[in-house]
Nucleic acid binder design. Structure first.
Lengths: 193, 193, 193, 193
DNA sequence: CATGAATGAGACTTCATTCAT
DNA sequence: TATGAATGAAGTCTCATTCAT
């Protein structure tokens, strides 16, 4: 693999275009042109368009997982952690909407791209999911969150954040995203408690 | 097969295949073959593949909106209405997973499919959104839900249900969906109150 | 499969171009243009370029096998049968050089096209090979040919005819092919006896 | 690695890969990697892939011509020479099947590879052909072979050997090639006499 | 209205060849 | 001379859409 900088530039380009136009409406040629390289060049870095989409997901997932890991390792109540996470998440959405939109739009809606041979593409996000699980578990242990089904708790966090992200991307929100931090944290904590 | 019947059969076929394989991985020929008609004849009913996708989403949206309208018109507390809605929704997911998966998939990726037409896929769901708004408003008026930003409340309902639907589609849930009715209603009501 | 006539026209076009320019130097577009249809059209008849090459081999092989079968079924000495076969073969080469050249050039030299999953592409010619075997066996039984290894006898017939065909295709022969009938039959019979 | 040595290593690598996968299914990169050099550096030795193919065929042809020349210069009957040639040829096929397979493959498909250059692949083999001609002429002069058309005699030798080589390459022969030496020589001599 | 063969535009991908280092 | 990243041209194949029957 030639060059790490270009590798990342390709991912960034793909991320931006996939999230904007969708995976199937973005061509390799566009991704290449977008960063001033030739289409064939991309194949020195990624063996296929699908693999590029996967690399992009891994890229975003790692960032999200890392952010949450840092928060998980802090000394703070679980409610505070939720707030911190919502905060860092919304900031991230503001700064890199294309990454989050990619995560929610392309990833969730194009299973056929990410899964292979019975293996759910879901596993690509495992790192992030593990951190969410830890966040929930810790809260249950400390008594701040009620014990209950993991998937419902997971849905309460990720679903609410995902939905508000979607609305933001659709430009239906009148204000800046960070305005909603406290209110969203509140709703999530209540849903979990 | 009368006109209207074939029209609906085409939508049902499209719905099933789009949700299973994705819009771009489903061909008009497959949709046609699936119900034993010719590819060309689909164009007697829908002017394009995109228009078929739109008709399908309208079809599903109307069903969801109608279900919620019936519940909204009942004499019941808002909490009970939430439970009723979750219940009817989960039943619907169990019976017609393809419709709900398509519903979420299309909305998440509407840009990909509908972007060129000016009208966002989001707008197509206005009926349904209006009913959700009414559900929330009524709860706020009755004092059961806290007053607050509509979009956050909307996200709390639709986001949580969407997330659990996604997990169900990914086959990561160990049990039947309806098991989660009470727990989910609980989480949603807490998030709103 | 739409239409038998066009199916055969495609095979004929492929045969002519493959034998003239080689498999890899012939494009689907050329094959199509050659008979005035669109490139995509070919894929209604053959799922891939490789499959078209295979169909062409089967086509030629069947003709060769049929010719030899007719001769094998005649009442004649084996030597006479050899002569008849050489005669009919040379006539065929004169009339349809592209078919025979295809057989010897494309088929023999592009194994990767015709074989699949351990299965030797050789089997595509089985019909013809069987007839050659019968021709030899009958001669051995009648005492005209010496008993011996089948593959050597096979090589004596097919190798000699193949080589003269090749030379003919290379335009190094000064005279018409049929001039050589008696001489070739002679050589083959001696090689076998 | 000195100049000449690398030159030959490239030819050997090309020979092995061309014969195994075919000219068009072998990439310059593979040829290079196979001997641990870079793709670009092949162009320091050969101006194009085609020229490399030509150099390879010349290389093999010279070996074959030389072997036959040595035999031609011996004091022996023509029949003995045929046997010697068959023997040395089969040994060569056993030791370097890739060279012989390439030899036949290239000549059969020379149009595909060399056509644009005006000079047919056939001409490249002139050295070898001359030696075959001498072998035949000597036999005719000594009365061992019957006088007749050169091309038929040539086909009898090269066609039979080519066919058995092909069968060997197809792995349809049950035994080692050298087993067939006497039998093959026999057939060839009879065909010529 | 139905059919389905035909079209043609366009996508992904490969690879010989070049050239700056 | 060596390297190998980059190019760009080309080829296979797909499929929404059309249209003659």
């Amino acid at each position: 693999m030639p060059n790490k900088e270009k590798h990342n530039a390709i991912i960034a380009s793909a991320l931006a275009l996939f999230s904007k136009y969708g995976f199937h409406n973005t061509t390799i040629a566009q991704i290449a042109k977008n960063i001033g390289i030739s289409a064939g060049s991309i194949y020195s870095y990624f063996p296929s368009k699908n693999s590029l989409a996967k690399a992009a997901i891994t890229f975003v997932t790692r960032i999200l997982a890392k952010q949450l890991r840092v928060i998980n390792e802090k000394e703070a109540s679980s409610q505070e952690k939720i707030t911190l996470f919502v905060q860092s998440y919304l900031t991230f959405v503001s700064k890199h909407p294309e990454m989050i939109e990619y995560f929610f739009k392309v990833y969730l809606t194009n299973k056929e791209i990410f899964s292979e041979e019975g293996k759910s593409g879901f596993e690509l996000a495992q790192d992030f999911i593990n951190e969410v699980e830890k966040l929930i578990d810790d809260g249950v242990k400390s008594g701040e969150f009620r014990a209950g089904n993991f998937y419902i708790a997971f849905s309460s966090i990720v679903g609410i954040l995902g939905a508000i992200t979607f609305l933001s991307g659709e430009k239906v929100l009148d204000k800046n995203l960070d305005i909603y931090t406290q209110d969203l944290s509140n709703s999530i904590c209540r849903a979990l408690s």
